[in-house]
């Protein structure tokens, strides 16, 4: 977690305002962009941190706004890109290299860390005002009235998305209702798909080798179809798949891929084989899409727990029955 990205260190080397305050450019370099892409695809994503502390963006003065951020480099980069042409202070909290919302949920992006960081960086000596602009999603970890009581700084919650910051600032720190709402649009979901795919890949690879030894290439293709259904199709088609529970949406994504493998001929034309793969593909897909609740922006823990209690026993039974049926057709 302590290793920092080498290119980034270079970018913050120069400092104009004070020897202790690193200065950062708004524009991302090519290597920034390449590394950000790799992290999105889940490579090295637990090691993508920025040093916590106070940063100067542009030429901030004592009146410039203070933006609070997390020390995940993707977060930090989004923020500095959104503020192109602006001078501001960026107060980076130590969130162990985790983004604002997740860190706030855990409490690392929290009241205690914010109050501490304000003191450690001697922020009150750099600015004359007493206002911190905290991303709205940080509110899950930060209590505005407690921060005020403990540090004397007022927390103003900024918009959910960094791209709305300039509008928010020029409107006199006012956010429209739209800026306050979290979405889960197709692009939002698409950036999460690589992570879903990479996370379960180890298990998929093991199971593939096992299936290949038992039954050749066809079962591996069927397994790949199930994996694709649950980790890609489910998340991408989320709004259009029937049901509200993710496990039900995943089940239907599995049905789609079952139709595909039947059409492709990797499922043999027998009722037992069809039933076996029908159970295996839909249960696996249902389980994988259910896991996408963790990446979604609107599922409640109470709801997820309720869904899991109903879905998991069914998924397990379906997978076991499916596997047994397949073994029966294969070897008897």
């Amino acid at each position: 977690m302590k290793t920092r990205n080498r290119e980034f260190k270079k970018a913050v080397k120069g400092s104009l305002c004070s020897p202790s305050i690193p200065k950062v450019p708004c524009k991302l370099s090519l290597s920034d962009r390449f590394n950000n892409f790799l992290v999105r695809a889940s490579f090295n994503r637990h090691d993508y941190a920025v040093d916590p502390g106070l940063y100067a963006l542009g030429e901030p003065t004592a009146d410039s706004p203070v933006m609070v951020s997390a020390n995940y480099k993707l977060t930090f980069d989004l923020l500095r890109q959104a503020l192109v042409g602006l001078s501001a202070w960026i107060l980076v909290l130590d969130t162990n290299g985790v983004n604002v919302w997740c860190a706030a949920g855990k409490g690392t992006f929290g009241t205690k860390e914010l109050v501490n960081r304000v003191k450690l960086t001697k922020l009150s000596e750099f600015v004359s005002h007493r206002r911190l602009i905290v991303p709205q999603l940080g509110a899950t970890g930060i209590s505005a009235h407690e921060v005020r009581a403990e540090s004397g700084f007022n927390v103003v919650y900024g918009p959910v998305r960094a791209e709305d910051l300039i509008t928010f600032l020029s409107a006199g720190l006012k956010a429209t209702p739209k800026m306050r709402e979290v979405t889960f649009s197709l692009p939002d979901r698409l950036v999460l798909v690589p992570v879903e795919v990479v996370q379960g890949f180890r298990y998929f690879a093991f199971a593939s080798i096992f299936l290949f030894l038992l039954g050749g290439i066809n079962p591996v293709v069927n397994l790949l179809a199930a994996y694709f259904a649950g980790a890609v199709l489910g998340p991408v088609l989320l709004p259009w798949l029937p049901g509200r529970a993710f496990s039900i949406k995943g089940f239907f994504a599995g049905l789609i891929m079952l139709a595909v493998v039947v059409a492709a001929g990797t499922v043999e034309a027998s009722l037992v084989e069809l039933l076996a793969w029908g159970l295996l593909i839909t249960s696996l897909s249902s389980f994988l899409t259910m896991n996408f609740t963790g990446a979604s922006t609107y599922t409640s823990p109470s709801g997820v727990l309720k869904e899991m209690k109903l879905a998991m026993p069914l998924q397990i039974v379906a997978a076991i029955v499916g596997a047994l049926l397949w073994l029966v057709v294969r070897f008897f």
Binding site: A139, T140, G141, S143, M290, N291, G294, P301, V304, E307
Partner: peptide, 22 residues
Amino acid sequence: ALNCPEGAITVKAGVGCASGII
């Protein structure tokens, strides 16, 4: 709930994530 200065809101907050629950 965390930002209500009067403590008027209660909610059992947590991680809405299946793998987290598992």
